[in-house]
Simulated scan of single mutants.
Amino acid sequence: MNRYERRPVAATEAELEYGDGEFRVIRPGSFVRCAVTGVPIPLDDLRYWNVALQEAYASPQAKMTRLGIALP
């Protein structure tokens, strides 16, 4: 393996620090869990999170549910 090849990441839960528009990997892994539904979210698909609560969400609906906003 050379320095340009990515090491395979084990199918374990990652620990992230969520920031504004980006996140930092604290503990490597391949997914995080949605704070509302508990479903695993692959890191490549992670689009929604809350910086203040440091939580990830699987969808915009999950985030709205967490914030207590009813959807039509």
Rank of each mutant, 00 (worst) to 15 (best):
R47D: 06
Q54E: 15
C34P: 09
P42N: 05
I69E: 12
G68L: 07
Q61F: 02
W49F: 07
E17R: 06
D44K: 10
G38I: 06
A56I: 03
L46Y: 11
L53E: 07
G21M: 03
P42H: 02
A11L: 09
M64I: 00
F23D: 05
R66I: 01
C34V: 09
I41M: 08
A70W: 15
L43K: 04
N50R: 05
A52T: 12
T37H: 10
R27E: 06
E15D: 04
K63E: 12
I69F: 10
M64P: 00
P60S: 02
E55Y: 01
A70N: 10
R27P: 01
T37Q: 08
A70S: 08
G29C: 01
P60R: 09
E15C: 01
W49Q: 04
E17Y: 13
R7A: 15
Y48K: 00
N2D: 11
L46N: 03
Y4K: 14
G68H: 05
G19F: 11
N50A: 13
R47I: 15
P72Q: 02
F31W: 09
E5A: 15
D45M: 15
Y48V: 15
D44Q: 08
V32A: 08
P42I: 00
Y4L: 08
E17S: 11
D45Y: 12
R47Y: 07
K63D: 00
Q54R: 03
Q61V: 08
P28L: 01
R47G: 04
Q54L: 04
Y48Q: 07
P40M: 03
Y48G: 00
C34L: 01
R33M: 09
F23K: 00
V9T: 14
S59I: 05
P28V: 07
Y18G: 02
T12H: 04
T37F: 00
R24L: 05
T65C: 09
E22N: 08
L67C: 10
G21P: 14
E17F: 14
R7W: 06
I69V: 14
N50C: 13
R27S: 13
R7G: 13
E5N: 12
P8E: 11
V32N: 02
V9C: 02
A14S: 05
P8I: 12
A35I: 06
D45E: 11
P72G: 07
M1Q: 11
F31Q: 03
V39D: 08
G68R: 04
F31D: 11
E15F: 00
I41L: 06
Q54G: 01
C34R: 04
P72F: 07
E13Q: 13
G68Q: 06
G68W: 01
M1G: 13
V39K: 10
E22G: 01
A14E: 10
E15H: 02
D45C: 15
P8H: 09
T37C: 13
